[in-house]
Amino acid sequence: MEILLAAAIGLLTAGGIYLILRLRTFPVILGLSLLSYACNLFIFAAGRLAPGLVPIIHKGSAGYTDPLPQALVLTAIVISFGMTAVLVMLAIGAHLGGGDDKVDLNE
């Protein structure tokens, strides 16, 4: 479980970093999305991995899993979703105006 999650975070981060170094906006946006997925998994794991437990203190259950990272992930997902939407609109605007979707800036 730990190895699977760590490998998933590592792969997503590596892919994300590779893609944000590309020259065109579309791969860059994909790369940022991958990075934010990696980040969400990472925050989730910050509360320790506890399969099958409820996020609330309850007499009937064996234990509980930390609910705070789940709330943090929710906030992070909402924010990264909104930011990606803004970025896509900007990229489309720059593409339509400039004629190409290259990232580089002319002086």
Partner: peptide
């Protein structure tokens, strides 16, 4: 608006999104 501003804005947004991550 304007092309130069949109493109510079794109740089700004991408840099800050990486920072947020």
């Amino acid at each position: 608006g304007g092309d130069a501003r949109l493109r510079a804005g794109l740089h700004y947004v991408v840099t800050n999104l990486v920072g947020s991550t």
